[in-house]
Design a protein around this nucleic acid. Structure first.
Lengths: 241, 241
DNA sequence: CGCCACAATATGTCTAGACATATTCATCTG
DNA sequence: CAGATGAATATGTCTAGACATATTGTGGCG
């Protein structure tokens, strides 16, 4: 093995847990014993155990010891791409068409969505993402003009606001929520589908150091979009190039 | 501050990067200098820098130094919980009711879904997850009996197969796919909703060292389920790739 | 019997120094 | 001038020991 010792120890314990040799809830040997077993310093096994704790595979409590975690929550890495990139990746032509644009003080709903006071200046843009000329997704986007004043100068007639925001407004946090819902009348008309059809909804909110910059909702007709996530559990995590 | 020193150092450097005081591509002081600046051992700043590297905020190269990372990947961490845990977390009673169970050789479709040869022994379980007695989700699950022979002994009458598999069969890889679709007749009946209603579908496949163990599809009526993902994105200013 | 104080224990953090390793830079040579 | 070579440098890993801190078990006291 060329791996550093702490990685080797981590991998070994991980394998023991995955294989079931160490069962959920079971107590691991303490650091001192593990260090003796591996013939290394306590800090080295401590590092391995901390890494496992960080990854959620074990739980550590002072005085009590280190225990194999019971997995109730699985975390998977979900890649959320730009709509345009997504459409082009499938080999189709991409276009954006703005349907509405309104600059005004935030309504109660809008204020709540953005986390700004009612009446704060916001920009609302509704637009259609087209793939080969057919509706692919409907975007409803709110932008806080306090957080991103430069957006007020933009028309967003055939450029989606998401792409512009990505390159012009920095952000520190993002939150996504995925749900299914039935198409209401206006949405159905805009997407050219029957009223009540199943839609996949992706809501995205982004913040810049605590202040919400923009909230958007993307509505995809059933079948148009699919979010996939893949999780590799064991030692697979290697440095990226 | 009550935080450990390495956390404090990490937080300070993170703040410098987020605020733009340290710009993408810029070189950080080396460990020795940082240690002198903070009046601590080199290992302590090393730990802080390693954590930043792990989080993708900086890139480290031997001899060259530590640099603020240029662009960061757009990935969000999606938490997928056990259905039972999910229901209980919302303060409702949870129950499971098996609707069907079939042990047989895999049909063509089933073989394709699991990645096993046609005719290989599989177990199919269909069941309903109930929240306060009301249908919450429909689960259709396929289990490869070659990969998990112990499952054949299970009835799964009021225990969901997912929970049993989690504790009895180890896995190394998992894949999730989320889509929206319209309810067909049988599904609508089972969930007690109108035909054509919007459903949120979560498909999950798990592998144990390359061999697919189980494939499941969870169908939630619109509104019953919502998948959320949160991302902390370092490097306030983003550059277009 | 129940409660509280205290000691034992396991983890958490940190140090100062050592050696290993990868990469870059400068210099030397053909 | 190109390419090889070796020295310098910054990170990567590890040790042995120290003190801090949280939690748990236990024994004594009301």
């Amino acid at each position: 093995m060329n791996l550093p010792l702490h990685e080797t120890i981590r991998a070994r314990l991980e394998a023991d847990i995955l294989s079931g040799r160490l069962k959920p809830g079971e107590k691991l040997p303490n650091e001192t014993d593990l260090a003796a077993e591996w013939g290394c310093a306590r800090m080295t096994v401590g590092r391995a155990l901390s890494a496992l704790a960080e990854a959620g595979m074990v739980q550590r409590r002072k005085r009590a010891g280190t225990f194999v975690a019971r997995r109730t929550v699985q975390e998977t890495v979900l890649e959320i791409r730009d709509v345009a990139a997504d459409v082009r990746a499938s080999g189709r032509d991409y276009a954006f068409r703005r349907l509405a644009r309104r600059e005004a003080g935030a309504s109660a709903d809008e204020a709540a969505a953005l986390g700004v006071p009612e009446g704060a200046p916001v920009l609302l843009v509704v637009g259609l993402h087209l793939a080969d000329g057919e509706p692919h997704a409907l975007e409803e986007r709110l932008i806080s003009l306090d957080a991103a004043p430069a957006a007020a100068r933009m028309r967003f007639e055939d450029e989606p606001p998401g792409a512009w925001l990505l390159t012009h407004v920095p952000w520190t946090e993002a939150e996504h929520a995925i749900t299914a819902l039935a198409a209401d009348g206006q949405t159905a008309k805009r997407l050219g589908i029957p009223v009540g059809s199943a839609l996949l909804s992706l809501e995205r909110k982004t913040w810049l150091s605590g202040a919400c910059v923009t909230a958007a909702r993307f509505l995809y007709p059933a079948g148009a979009q699919r979010f996939t996530a893949r999780l590799r559990q064991p030692g697979g995590r290697r440095e990226q190039a």
